[in-house]
Design a protein around this nucleic acid. Sequence first.
DNA 1: TCCAGTTTAAAACAATCGTTTGAATCAAAC
DNA 2: GTTTGATTCAAACGATTGTTTTAAACTGGA
Lengths: 207, 207
Amino acid sequence: MSAEQTKDRILHAAQELFAEKGFPATSLREITQRAGVNLAAVNYHFGSKDGLLEALVRHCIEPINAARMRMLEEAEDAAQGAPLPLDRIIRIFLEPALRQLTDCDAKMPCILSRMHHEPHPGLEALMADLLTPIIRRFVAAVQRTLPERTPSEIILHGHFMIGAMLHLLDAQPSMLHTMSEGAIDVNDNDYLLDQLVSFCSAGFQHA
Amino acid sequence: MSAEQTKDRILHAAQELFAEKGFPATSLREITQRAGVNLAAVNYHFGSKDGLLEALVRHCIEPINAARMRMLEEAEDAAQGAPLPLDRIIRIFLEPALRQLTDCDAKMPCILSRMHHEPHPGLEALMADLLTPIIRRFVAAVQRTLPERTPSEIILHGHFMIGAMLHLLDAQPSMLHTMSEGAIDVNDNDYLLDQLVSFCSAGFQHA
DNA sequence: TCCAGTTTAAAACAATCGTTTGAATCAAAC
DNA sequence: GTTTGATTCAAACGATTGTTTTAAACTGGA
């Protein structure tokens, strides 16, 4: 097995287990067993368990943020300087994250929410580093659409939006399913995305 | 020291440490040391570390839910059968939770968010048991105000609202503070509550 | 074929974990 | 003052943790 294959299998197993049980409750033996590699491979390839976590965070977040940046730039280019509709901006922010639910192995709780809520030393700073440029970019876009809003208001509303998104991504679809007595199709990600975009768009524009 | 004092000190120390570092990463030795009690006291009074977690969850959640129930019933009684304004319902749901931020020791990350996101076996079911009656009660109240909404829609919007609330309660005020370059006063809980209520009220009423 | 560098394998490391034990201590009832 | 039950204490238990070590297996270029 090549080195890249080994690293990928470790990352994949770690993503599943961290999402399912959290970082401290997951042992390296569990990860390497599921990945089918030797225990020492984690320390060899990633230096430490903490190193694996940081690599996993980057591995999961960076593609999402890259997609957000690309889609926002394409939309702004196409608009030729005109402000984008608010729901368009919000959808561009939310869709790459929610798409994880569709692309990932079925039923896997999403690692993205776990990364935001895992209280690990240094992780919050790393997440802030990865998210700050994206947030600034989207705040600027919203400000062009809602010029009467202050940046602080937009940031606070974005905070609410991210919270709603993370909670939807979290391992709680069962809660939604049981509470609605099966009426909500938790696998219909297009519907969930539409509803979330509408909810947040209205929230941003509140009187 | 009486037995009740011992249990309270353990609960208090556990609340701080679980909120700060999460459940699996917090050792009983750390808790008992901070509480100033003997290590064996946890197993004596709560049976096990898991038993302590369950007791803490009930200790933290039940007062909030009791306040929600009481305030909603008082408001409905005063309205004499008329539907309550939406923002009134939402404020009654959010305020008892956000008040924790004011009442708790300053700067303490809120345990409420951690409890929702800690992936511990059995904890999700316990949280569902504690929250289900409250949610059903509030869904019924909202449905009287927004009769054109289906229960499923209200539940989904409530899900978004809870996500926004938990993210605000989470240990991320520093993120808000730095992103807004200090313009957002993260200690002004009245302002944060007002904004969250407005955001969610608009979200519930979206076209 | 040989060799240098890389990756894996199994075992052992010290440290820490939750839990249990049994004696010591406490408070109150008789 | 003695007894009884509840509570606290220090110590130790076995198990598991992340990490390191040593040798074996593999890799691709001369």
